[in-house]
Write a protein that binds this DNA or RNA. Sequence first.
DNA 1: AAGCGCCCCAACCGCTGAATG
DNA 2: ACATTCAGCGGTTGGGGCGCT
Length: 321
Amino acid sequence: MGRSPCCDKTGLKKGPWTHEEDLLLVNYINTHGAGNWRNLPKNAGLQRCGKSCRLRWTNYLRPDIKRGRFSFEEEEAIIQLHSVLGNKWSAIAARLPGRTDNEIKNYWNTHIRKRLLRSGIDPVTHTPRLDHLFDMSSINILRSALLGSNPSFLNLLGGAQALMNPELLKLAATATLLNNNMNLVSQNQQQFNNVANYSTQQQAQNNQVSLQDQFQIPTQTHNNIITSSISAENSNPCNFEEDLISKQYSELFHCLNHGNNNNMGYESVISSTPLWTTPTPTPTPSSTYVNSCTEEERDTYCSDIFKFEIPESGLDINDFL
DNA sequence: AAGCGCCCCAACCGCTGAATG
DNA sequence: ACATTCAGCGGTTGGGGCGCT
């Protein structure tokens, strides 16, 4: 695999670009157009390698680049797109007009990722972190989930010690995560619609294909959630969710079908009251971005997105045994 | 004011796949 | 079929800015 010589080997300049260099590059591209990056530096009078020129242009100097803080809608779009596309920054950037992959990647790593971690969400899988799930407050959550309206079950299992039973906790966590994922995927459909609407509005100006044309949102039926794949260009998205859900489903389904009763078949699991509630904001139908919230407010919103709520009835552990 | 540590982000690095001869 | 070049991508780095002591 041949590779063009590195700047180091050819004595070309590296490091931050000066204003004069930017002007040379912009003027040259405005006159001759972008492309032929190998010869561009020499023709433009720049002591830079072509790669450096291309990156400077695509990440900073391009006239259609939107500078400044990310809006709330953009941030939400990034989170939702990342949950499907993963670290496909260029694919995400393609759906956020005016933003570069580098910018989105930086913003993810410095802001969104940290916020998700603070909220107890794994930024890779977009699911609750197990270590977070098992801290003491989560034990209480699990306790509520397990017992629900049947507090006598605690005594049946031998008191609070039962909650420290690793197998029982694993089962509860599996059930909880399964339910979370089911609703997360369903929730994604609604949020994708919002993102798609937002993206479509933005992209209409750029004559780009709308998000809805490029995504096949999974249906809410369980079978489709398990078996369908979300197709997107140059990507193989949602595999992690399929894998995770499939594993969790298989494990729980085994429990359900081999238990004493089948009142809580998987259909009822899926159609039960969502454990996740999502305040779904409506993207501002505007061509301009309004940075109307602070970092703290976004933090709060992020926490709300992933708020962990247990239905009134709780989860009846009897159905699992 | 100086020193220190942390954060952010522009830029670089190294790899891959497509295009070309 | 193979070598080479090029463009694009994702991961990583390092220097400047900033806040704290």
